[in-house]
Amino acid sequence: MSERRFPWEAVLAFIFGAALGLAYAWVLAPVQVIDSAPEALRAEFKDQYRAAIAASYAANGNLTRAQSRLALLNDADAYQSLSAQAQQLLAAGQTRESQQVAQLASALQGLAPTVAPSTPTVPIAATSTQAQDPNAAATSTPIETETPLPFYTATARPTHTLIPTPGKPFELGTQENVCDESIGEGLLQITVQLTSRRQLPGIELILSWSGGEEHFFTGLKPELGNGYADFNMTSGVFYTLRAAEGGAVVPALTAPVCPAANGGTFFGGIRIVLQRP
């Protein structure tokens, strides 16, 4: 009488074969990476990709296309990524790239000046047919999704020009003298923000005085706030502050004379908040 036993040998052979197959597929001959998407790039290359998107946007002003391209990077928050990158570029002294990235960040928020397309080298009036599909990484190539893009017109503008902002201009929120000996003398502290208190990086500020002018940007000291910038005033000099893109002009800024703890005096600072309604 023959007894039917469970086929352990076959089961063991199956398990051994599966392990063999997995080892081959994962270790010996893993899937070759030849067609990766931008989202799989190393962080530094993603930054470069983002900067190229911003530079392209600065040149052609096509926000829809820039958004499609940004989607390929799969950032959790494209605005935050761009803002952080703008600050890093500013800190690295790459002013133009920083401005481009900050401009795109602001455009995403619908806040900033949009960029007019620059004049093509060869005057061409043609519809653009190539567009990026935001979901291209998961589906077909972006080229296959053809979306008509705005008309490129050969205008007479020699360089790209800022179109007046669609949002409201900056207003003076608050201005106060700061008599704090622990802060450097004559420190002008500026914060640029929305009325919702969201701070705005990459905003160009202009401080002018008799015989001089200084341009600087918010966000250079992110540890103090994305919309923060400061300047050391010289005592006795009167300054006028404004944002490069227009709005409120804050005149007659000068370091106030403050009483010191030892009975003497020292030059205090000024704290200003510029805000966009």
Binding site: G17, L20, G21, Y24, A25, W26, P30
Partner: peptide, 13 residues
């Protein structure tokens, strides 16, 4: 069983 196991392993991997 060995062949099927290997094939499934490759398919999964």
């Amino acid at each position: 069983a060995l062949v099927i196991g290997t094939a499934l392993g490759l398919l999964y991997g």
